[in-house]
Design a protein around this nucleic acid. Sequence first.
DNA 1: ATGAAAGCGCTAACAA
DNA 2: TTGTTAGCGCTTTCAT
Lengths: 356, 356
Amino acid sequence: MTLLHRETTVENMSIVSPEFEAPKKVTIEDVARHAGVSVATVSKAVNRKYGVAKATIERVNEAVRELGYVPSMAASSMRNSASNVVGILLAGFDPFATEVIKGISAEAVNKDYELMAYSAAIADDKTVGWERDSLIRLGGTILDAAIVLTPSVALPEVAMPIVAIDPRMGPGGPPSIACDSLAGARAATQHLIDLGHTRIAHIRGRTDLTSALIREQGYCQAIAEAGLPYDPSMIVDGGYRRNWGADATRKLLALPEPPTAIFAANDSSALGVMDAAAEMGLSIPRDLSVVGFDDVPECMYATPALTTVAQPLMEMGAQAYRTILSMLGHEDVENSLKVPAELVVRGSTAPFVAAA
Amino acid sequence: MTLLHRETTVENMSIVSPEFEAPKKVTIEDVARHAGVSVATVSKAVNRKYGVAKATIERVNEAVRELGYVPSMAASSMRNSASNVVGILLAGFDPFATEVIKGISAEAVNKDYELMAYSAAIADDKTVGWERDSLIRLGGTILDAAIVLTPSVALPEVAMPIVAIDPRMGPGGPPSIACDSLAGARAATQHLIDLGHTRIAHIRGRTDLTSALIREQGYCQAIAEAGLPYDPSMIVDGGYRRNWGADATRKLLALPEPPTAIFAANDSSALGVMDAAAEMGLSIPRDLSVVGFDDVPECMYATPALTTVAQPLMEMGAQAYRTILSMLGHEDVENSLKVPAELVVRGSTAPFVAAA
DNA sequence: ATGAAAGCGCTAACAA
DNA sequence: TTGTTAGCGCTTTCAT
């Protein structure tokens, strides 16, 4: 994240006072007083306009405008069942999550729901279970429904529709959307095999996610079918994270017989592979071929561009939103949707040549 | 957004019932009853643990665990002043917004605040004023502070720290972060001039945003300084939006003397230019050179890759978050920060050659 | 150390 | 058509 440390110049040196004086929050009561009616009448006038005299509505609206009144979400959603907000629950705004969000958002345009992407402040110790807490904390009141990204624990029963994207396995969960990780991982590994590599390593994903397990399985299948020997030292943990991917790579390359190609379970860790390679003076793809998984935009920014397995992230987000809408409308929905994954060959892979 | 319509296959045809039965939401009262204490005691025990007997805390915690209790955010934030949530208010999850969010998020890791990105459901008619409403609706209760993206109206006085990114002009607003649009726009236009173009069009941004106005100004300056004639028909509206950019392009190319190069005020509209060009059978950059502004990831996906002016979006987000944190800590902050913009030449621009 | 009670801003019965 | 009365789930004096 060196991007975050570019120089910046202060344009205007004037200092602003940190005091936030009298913010006079306008409540429904103020409006009622101003309009000379009761709070209940204001509430009715502001929401559904039936059962209120035309003239009264006028007067209330005027008071609302004059005072700049906007109903407090916390209060109304507590009393109300509906908040008209669909939540997107995630562990952090990483490239994967933001792509999915774009897809959800594109689908949500001109629908009646607002979107709220919520990222729990995840202490390093408790990286698990955040989905559960967020769901309960926001559910029922602030949210009418939720799309949960890569949940790794069983989701609690809550009083609203839920859809999971790339969830952990287990039967009986909420409807879910995932891509065909097995085929994708096989294609990635096969690509490396086709290039003539025989020492192909795999950097695992988060072991609490089915998708990661399946990708490992796809890797193993391809290796086995090609008649290549199974070498446990070629499989290391990467946790779907960039720096873990770099660590794993250092470990791998320190082996007596290091791999000539690496298939990482996602792009972030594949980018980590490239970090480590660069740091060790290795050239990609000449000295090492790398394949990722997901196809987040960052793949194109890497040098060379990262060969990866494309997951239709935006499409998955859009699907999730459509499913949520169906559930909100009490329609039946498919329990589990699988979308295709596709190998995208770019510059980070090359035919194997014996070391100089 | 053709991406959103890829084929998908149903993996599991089992249908899930849309009924969400008895979700037994666990309230503080349930915990109190279960633990044999009062709700007040539970509240104290759960929050600050002073004034409560050790044994009682134990008992309460056990009840919490057994029942799976999580405090409702709506309720507690209504009664409380602090919610520990920093909001990001935006008009939609477009590429610009998501890049900024990534920057904020990277900076927010391991801080004590949760992040909540909120996108109002913007009816097509009322695309203005959403920031005001969102701010008031969520402020004070659900949010402790807010970062507002490209607000175009004066932000209301609210009882919490606010930072604006790329806001409309006007004195006396909240602290703001923006890039040097003037220099960026001049560089973009100059690049086109250097390539030999003389009929250079400009597609405006949102006219309610200072940044857009300044970019237009930069364009005009560069044109004037090069001694090129000023032609008002070469400047059209694009609203920072992709389809508007396409519309503008059709208009431009239908002119008796169409431009040979276009500088669009942002990448989305520049991508729209490419859409329109493709649709009309024009080759970029052979028949038409295009420059954008922002450098969102999508630039790299375009064919050819889009020449653009890079705004350090992630850096701007990070800055905004740092500023918010300072304000939350009652420190003084700079009123207005300007970060540099930088021309990035890629494949969508080429030297001018007389038409075949 | 604990509990009773008031109330945050709002909506939904029910009365008037 | 309007106002009165209860709360939603939680925190917080203020008694006990």
